[in-house]
Every structure is written in structure tokens, then in C-alpha cells.
């Protein structure tokens, strides 16, 4: 072996300094990795979990909510009911654009308070036009305004959902009752679905949601309104934590004009069935072939 030269010594020193700088650069990750449990890291996809494993996951998530948010919540796993296919209809003739549905969604679904997140956007549209290019979601004046009508848009629960198609890890899928859901613990946060959705229905958690403990809705389900982790996608599920146990979506209950009709299309006596059979309904962006389960109509 050749003896240690000055150059070798300098190189060794450089390597040491480099390694130290590398460690310093990654230091901000330390707190983040401490917050990640091994169980959470290794958790399998929702649809691969055995009933026992799923039960453990639900208890773990409840514990985490208590620790992180100081709120006692109950997270359920609600499956689609047999013989049920959900659909939603909205009467554009009576909607006044008050955004009560937006607010109800915000509270019901435990959205981040700082960003005023909600799954619903209400467009103020111009009479005589269905072109969204001429509408706006940023209106700030008493409603309803002269010469305008209002069109709330949320997830259309498409039967041919482009968001599901593009997901590289099958973190989002369509359930038997027509709802498109996300496993928040499987999503990798690539946001391809957000690019693919033609209805701006999907939202990303750009940061950890912040909600005061006393405002947290404790009635939660794994696939819907439980508090989402940072860095994953989320979306409207027609409030499946309510609708799969026989209740109505929060946006419908909040609507002061009765513009919203929700129900099981497979039930011949349901209100939604009556609307679909008797009103001249239409869907948004029909030409894209997404086959929405969300219908609009004018009551004239």
C-alpha cells in the first residue's frame, strides 16, 4: 500500500464534511418520521385487510385523532348496502347560490379550517348560457342576483370515472352503490386523479388539516369524513358515513330551498327515481363519456 498522502487526507476530510452536511440537510425529516408508526407504514390496502386487521386500523386511527386533535371520535367501516345505487339531482330553478351546502360540507366532513376547504363549489352562471367560461365561483354579493342562476358542483360519482382509471396504485375505486372512494392510507399523493377529473371534484391535503377539537364531527367512517392525513387526496363521498346508515347527505339537509334530491335509484318509490323519470334532467360535460350519477334540471 502507498502511504497516506496529504491529498488522501483532504479527500477523507471532504467526505466527512459532506456526510455531515447531508445529515444536516435531512434534519427536518426527523420530526416527520417520528410521527409515522410502523403499523401505519406497513398497512395494506383497505380491500386486502381482514376484518381483524381493519378493526385494529380503526382503533389506531381513533387513538391518533385523540392524540393529535384531542377529540374522541368513532370511526366506522360502512360497506355498500345491497340493492342500493345512489344518485343525486339538483334543481337549478330553485337554487339561490347561498352556499349553505358548501358550509355544511365543510363542517360535516372535518375539512381544514384555515383553507375553508369544501367539496362543493357553487358557480354563478349567466342566464342563457351553460358555458362555465362565463360563470364565476368568486361572487361576493347578495344572492340571487338579477340575470344569474346558480350551479353547485361536487363529485359526480361517475360510472366511468377518469380519476379511478389513472390512479397508479388503485387507491381510489368505485363501490357497488356507485360511490367513488379513496383509501387515504394507501394514496401516494401523485395528484394524477386531480388532473384527470373534469369536474374539479378532488382535493389534495397540502398540509395537515387543522380543526379545533370541539368542532370535530365525531361520527366518522374510514372511507369518508375521518380527518385526512397530509399529502393525500380526498373527495366527496355523498357523506357515506350518513347515507350508508339511512341518513341524507349534509349538503341536502342544509339546503334552505329544497333544491337537492338524493336517493336510491333502484327503489322505484324514491324521490330521486321520480325526478329522473319526470323531469328533463341533464348531466355536466356529457360529451366526455364519464356517465355521472349527479343530475341537474330546471323546474319549469
Amino acid at each position: 500500500m502507498t502511504p497516506l498522502t496529504r491529498r488522501d487526507a483532504l479527500k477523507g476530510l471532504g467526505a466527512l464534511l459532506g456526510a455531515a452536511a447531508f445529515g444536516r440537510a435531512l434534519a427536518p425529516l426527523q420530526a416527520w418520521t417520528e410521527g409515522l408508526s410502523v403499523d401505519a407504514f406497513l398497512q395494506r390496502h383497505y380491500r386486502e385487510l381482514t376484518p381483524e386487521a381493519l378493526r385494529d386500523v380503526l382503533r389506531r386511527l381513533e387513538d391518533e385523532t385523540l392524540q393529535d386533535y384531542g377529540a374522541e371520535v368513532h370511526i366506522e367501516d360502512l360497506r355498500p348496502l345491497p340493492g342500493v345505487k345512489f344518485a343525486y339531482a339538483l334543481n337549478l330553478s330553485v337554487c339561490i347560490g347561498c352556499r349553505k351546502c358548501v358550509e355544511a360540507c365543510h363542517h360535516e366532513n372535518n375539512h381544514d379550517r384555515d383553507t375553508q376547504q369544501s367539496y362543493i363549489r357553487v358557480l354563478e352562471m349567466e342566464q342563457g348560457s351553460l358555458d362555465m367560461e362565463r360563470g364565476t365561483a368568486d361572487y361576493d354579493h347578495p344572492v340571487p342576483a338579477q340575470g344569474k342562476y346558480y350551479m353547485p358542483v361536487q363529485c359526480q360519482q361517475c360510472d366511468n370515472p377518469p380519476c379511478v382509471k389513472v390512479c397508479p396504485v388503485e387507491a381510489t375505486w368505485k363501490e357497488r352503490d356507485g360511490l367513488v372512494v379513496i383509501d387515504y392510507n394507501w394514496c401516494i399523493g401523485c395528484r394524477y386523479c386531480e388532473a384527470a377529473c373534469p369536474y374539479h371534484a378532488r382535493r389534495f391535503n397540502w398540509k395537515k388539516p387543522s380543526i379545533p377539537a370541539d368542532e370535530i364531527n365525531p361520527v366518522q367512517a374510514y372511507l369518508s369524513n375521518r380527518i385526512r392525513p397530509a399529502g393525500v387526496m380526498e373527495k366527496c363521498t355523498f357523506c357515506l358515513h350518513r347515507t350508508r346508515s339511512g341518513r341524507l347527505p349534509a349538503c341536502l339537509e342544509a339546503c334552505p330551498t329544497g333544491a337537492r334530491v338524493f336517493g336510491n335509484v333502484l327503489d322505484p318509490d324514491s324521490d330521486i327515481r321520480w325526478v329522473l323519470e319526470n323531469k328533463r334532467v341533464f348531466v355536466l360535460k356529457e360529451e366526455l363519456g364519464t356517465k355521472p350519477s349527479f343530475f341537474y334540471f330546471f323546474d319549469v
Binding site: A21, F22, R24, A25, L26, A27, P28, L29, A31, W32, G189, F204, N205, W206, K207, K208, A230, G231
Partner: peptide
């Protein structure tokens, strides 16, 4: 390393 550090912050604090 500057990039790595910025990424570490982004991952820890969120993509906001």
C-alpha cells in the same frame, strides 16, 4: 444539498 434540505422541509411541513 440545498435542494435536499428544501425537500425535507416540504415533506415534513406539507406541500403547502
Amino acid at each position: 444539498l440545498v435542494g435536499l434540505n428544501a425537500w425535507a422541509h416540504q415533506t415534513a411541513e406539507g406541500m403547502a
